[in-house]
Design a protein around this nucleic acid. Sequence first.
RNA 1: GCCGAGUUAGCUCAGUUGGUAGAGCAUUCGACUGAAAAUUGAAGGGUCCACGGUUCGAGUCCGUGACUCGGCA
Length: 312
Amino acid sequence: MIEKPLLLIVGPTASGKSSLAIKLARALDAEIVSADSRYLYRELEIGVAKPSSADLASVKHHLINVASLTNPWNLGLYKQSATQIISEIQLRNRLPILTGGTGQYVRSILQNWQIPSHGPVGQLREDLETIGDHIGFDKLYEILSALDPQAAANIDYRNHRRTIRALEVILSSGKKFSDLRDKEKPPYTTLIIGLELQREVLYARIDERVDAMISQGLVGEVQNLLDAGSGPALEAMRVIGYNEIITHLRGEISLEEAAALIKRNTRAYVRRQANWFKPTDPDIHWLNAQDPALFENALDLIESNFGIKPER
RNA sequence: GCCGAGUUAGCUCAGUUGGUAGAGCAUUCGACUGAAAAUUGAAGGGUCCACGGUUCGAGUCCGUGACUCGGCA
């Protein structure tokens, strides 16, 4: 069987991934598969810079607004759904475009991660946290080291979350965490387009975007969520832009301070995002996001890699 | 003009009884297999306002000057 094409568009938040993807999708009659952990939730709008409903309607989008904050998704669910959706699109003989800012999600598809089938076990996770609080997370890490030295070597002892996750899998499966994870060759021919933008320019765009979010009514959106009972206790609500506004609504900081914090945290986020896709990665075709010929450059790459071009 | 406080990292500031400097934030780089906009690690960065003095040795003590901020005239 010939492997079918999958186009990936990667790059930091605010680099213009979505708009490029939409233009390409229109031109090539393609469908967009989101790889953004926050677009999954229908309650989050302004603060996550979700594409407008007009944009969403103009091209077929997948994995946006498919979940509720009270029923959070995760990597395993995402990988499973995205894989299935991609193959369905390919069966329709259309090009799937995978794009989004969640590096982990993109890479799970790109490297075809074989994720442990043992999902989060609510009670066990809580228990491990409680135990950690009592005996100290250092002890918890020592236990992990004893049970699965290889997994422990891969995790910083100060990183409680990853320590707990590894123990969770070991205790619920009876197997080593490090044995349950693997990657395989993905069943696609892939082309990865990366959008690059100077940090300075990117930071300036972020500042603008945060101010715009606030004038578009981010505070109101957060207030509505709180009124509806979606508070900071929900993991999926732990989103840049929402936390800071909640702190403001509690009267602890001014709106200006909240905006400054959102900008700061978004800049840090962008730096963390960059860890997933590096300028030195030989598999990524980096294109200048500000180049007026960006769209044409992308079309050229697609044609030479996939032999697909717009119908005229 | 007089009195007081101050001047140390890009910013806000610590710095004990003198032994050539620290924090937070910022900046940069890294990890990541079912919480990932999460969680987490590391690094770079200082003529300690200037000049002189005391001292083996001054960010620290003394003097002079410059600048900043208060107060009083």
